[in-house]
C-alpha cells in the first residue's frame, strides 16, 4: 500500500527488470515481449485469465523456465546467463541454483515434501543448500513457523495439515532461505474459500515488512489492499498496468474491462 520506494531504493537497480521477454512452448507463443519493472520493496500483482502467461512469466524469473528472447534481471543479475564481452554464456547448474536461493517461490499446489514434517520441510534448504549448523537452522525454522502461526504444528506431516496450513508452511520454507524476492504462483487457488484468509494474512504481513513480492492471483481484494502495482496480462502481453485501485475501478482497455466484469 505504502510507497516503498525510498530515495535510496530508487537509486538502485530495480529488483526485477524484464526487458522484452518472450517464451514459446513449441509453436505456442506464451509470452510476447513482456517488459516490466519491480522496485525494491514493491508488491506487484499479476492478474489475467488463465493461459495468459502469468505463471510462465513468474517461472521464468527464477529460471524454472528458460526464456527464448529478451533479458530478465533480478537485483542487477542476469538470470540464467553470464554476459562477458557482449556474449551470453549459459550458467552452470550450481550457479543457476545459487541465483534461485535468493528468490523464494510459493506454488499453487504447495509442493511440500510429504515425507518430511513441517519443521523438516522448512529446515531442508538451509541445511543442505546453505550448509548451516543444525541447531541454528532449527531455531530459525521454529521461529518462521511461529511467524506463520504454526508453531504447534512443527512435527506434523503435510498430510495431517489443512491446505491453508500447508501453504503457510510452504511460505515459511521459502522464507527460510532469506530471499530478497518472493514469487507467489496463485497461492490461494487450491484452497477452500474459508482457508484463503489465513494465507493472505501471512502475505500481507510480509508485504508490510517490506518484502518484494510478485503475486499471481485472482484475489482482487488482496491486490487492491496490498499491491503497489497491478499488471493485467492477456494472451502473453501486458495489456494494462498501474496503480491497483485505478486499474480495478477504472480499467482503460476493453480486455481488462471484460475480465474484471467477470471476476469482480
Amino acid at each position: 500500500m505504502s510507497d516503498a520506494t525510498t530515495p535510496s531504493a530508487a537509486a538502485r537497480a530495480p529488483m526485477v527488470l524484464a526487458d522484452r521477454v518472450s517464451k514459446s512452448f513449441g509453436s505456442n507463443e506464451v509470452l510476447k515481449s513482456i517488459s516490466l519493472e519491480v522496485k525494491h520493496g514493491e508488491v506487484m500483482c499479476l492478474v489475467g485469465p488463465s493461459g495468459s502467461g502469468k505463471s510462465t512469466f513468474l517461472r521464468c524469473i527464477n529460471h524454472l523456465e528458460v526464456v527464448n528472447s529478451g533479458r530478465l534481471m533480478v537485483d542487477g543479475d542476469l538470470i540464467g546467463y553470464r554476459e562477458t564481452g557482449g556474449r551470453l554464456y549459459e550458467l552452470a547448474p550450481k550457479d543457476a541454483a545459487r541465483q534461485r536461493r535468493d528468490i523464494g517461490m510459493v506454488f499453487q499446489r504447495f509442493n511440500l515434501f510429504p515425507h518430511m514434517t513441517a519443521l523438516e520441510n522448512v529446515m531442508e534448504a538451509p541445511l543442505r543448500v546453505k550448509k548451516m549448523a543444525k541447531a541454528r537452522v532449527e531455531q530459525d525454522a521454529r521461529a518462521l513457523l511461529a511467524r506463520v502461526g504454526l508453531a504447534d504444528r512443527a512435527d506434523y506431516y503435510p498430510a495431517h495439515l489443512s491446505g491453508g496450513q500447508q501453504q503457510r508452511v510452504a511460505i515459511a520454507r521459502a522464507l527460510a532461505m532469506e530471499p530478497k524476492l518472493m514469487l507467489f504462483d496463485e497461492p490461494t487457488s487450491a484452497l477452500d474459500p474459508e482457508l484463503v484468509g489465513e494465507v493472505l494474512d501471512v502475505m500481507k504481513g510480509l508485504a508490510k515488512e517490506g518484502m518484494t513480492m510478485i503475486v499471481v492471483t485472482h484475489e482482487m481484494g488482496f491486490a487492491r489492499e496490498v499491491a503497489d502495482s497491478l499488471v493485467f496480462m492477456d494472451g502473453g502481453v501486458v495489456v494494462e498496468s498501474g496503480d491497483p485501485d485505478e486499474v480495478l475501478s477504472n480499467p482503460q482497455h476493453r480486455r481488462t474491462q471484460a475480465f474484471l466484469s467477470k471476476v469482480l
Binding site: 527464477n62 524454472l64 547448474p93 550450481k94 541454483a97 545459487r98 534461485r100 536461493r101 528468490i103 523464494g104 517461490m105 506454488f107 499446489r109 509442493n111 511440500l112 515434501f113 531442508e124 534448504a125 543442505r128 543448500v129 510452504a170 520454507r173 521459502a174 532461505m177
Partner: peptide, 18 residues
C-alpha cells in the same frame, strides 16, 4: 513422484543431485 516436488526443491536452490 510429482513434478512439483522437483520444482519446489529446485526453486529452493537445491542441486539436481540433492
Amino acid at each position: 513422484v510429482d513434478k512439483g516436488q522437483d520444482e519446489a526443491a529446485t526453486a529452493l536452490g537445491m542441486t539436481w543431485f540433492q
